[in-house]
Amino acid sequence: MTQLSVIGLNQESAKSLADKLNQLLANYQVFYMNVRGFHWNVRGEKFFELHVKFEETYNDLLLKIDEVAERILTLGQRPRHAYSAYLDSSQIAEVKDVHDGRECVQQVLDSYQVVIALQREILQLAGDANDEGTASLMSDYIKEQEKTAWMLNAYLG
Results as ranks from 00 to 15, higher is better:
51 H>D: 08
151 M>V: 05
31 F>I: 01
89 S>Q: 13
37 G>E: 08
22 N>C: 05
56 E>C: 11
131 D>M: 03
105 V>K: 05
60 D>A: 14
12 E>Y: 14
93 A>H: 06
149 A>S: 09
111 S>N: 02
49 E>K: 10
73 L>I: 12
70 E>P: 01
17 L>F: 06
126 A>G: 04
57 T>M: 13
61 L>D: 01
58 Y>M: 11
30 V>S: 01
81 H>T: 10
43 R>F: 15
99 H>M: 13
145 Q>C: 03
7 I>Y: 05
32 Y>Q: 08
131 D>G: 04
54 F>R: 06
20 K>N: 11
89 S>N: 11
20 K>V: 02
12 E>Q: 11
39 H>L: 08
157 G>I: 06
6 V>G: 00
97 D>Y: 13
62 L>K: 11
104 C>P: 03
129 A>D: 01
72 I>C: 10
127 G>N: 10
130 N>W: 15
30 V>T: 03
140 D>V: 08
52 V>N: 08
45 E>H: 14
87 L>H: 07
1 M>S: 02
4 L>G: 00
130 N>K: 15
105 V>D: 03
127 G>D: 04
145 Q>P: 00
80 R>M: 12
37 G>W: 08
31 F>Q: 04
134 T>N: 00
33 M>G: 03
137 L>E: 07
93 A>E: 13
139 S>H: 12
32 Y>D: 01
111 S>W: 06
54 F>T: 07
23 Q>T: 13
95 V>D: 04
57 T>F: 14
37 G>K: 10
29 Q>N: 10
110 D>Q: 06
98 V>R: 11
135 A>N: 02
102 R>H: 11
146 E>N: 12
155 Y>M: 10
71 R>W: 06
108 V>R: 05
65 I>P: 01
94 E>V: 10
114 V>N: 00
52 V>Y: 09
132 E>T: 09
61 L>M: 04
32 Y>K: 07
48 F>N: 06
84 S>L: 14
67 E>S: 14
21 L>W: 09
41 N>C: 06
102 R>D: 14
57 T>H: 13
37 G>T: 07
17 L>E: 03
113 Q>V: 09
121 E>T: 10
114 V>G: 00
107 Q>T: 08
23 Q>D: 10
51 H>C: 09
150 W>Y: 09
54 F>H: 07
44 G>I: 12
135 A>C: 01
41 N>D: 12
148 T>W: 02
132 E>V: 09
136 S>D: 10
45 E>T: 15
155 Y>Q: 10
146 E>C: 04
118 L>C: 03
102 R>Q: 11
68 V>D: 04
149 A>Q: 05
42 V>I: 12
152 L>Q: 05
146 E>K: 12
32 Y>V: 07
74 T>D: 11
142 I>R: 00
71 R>A: 07
151 M>K: 00
41 N>G: 06
89 S>A: 14
8 G>I: 04
38 F>T: 02
127 G>T: 10
23 Q>R: 08
131 D>H: 03
49 E>R: 09
71 R>N: 02
110 D>V: 02
117 A>Y: 09
60 D>E: 14
55 E>M: 07
40 W>F: 12
25 L>I: 02
126 A>R: 03
31 F>K: 05
60 D>M: 09
49 E>P: 02
104 C>Q: 03
103 E>Y: 05
119 Q>I: 03
96 K>R: 15
71 R>E: 11
112 Y>M: 02
78 R>A: 13
62 L>Y: 15
152 L>V: 01
80 R>Y: 12
27 N>L: 08
106 Q>V: 10
48 F>T: 05
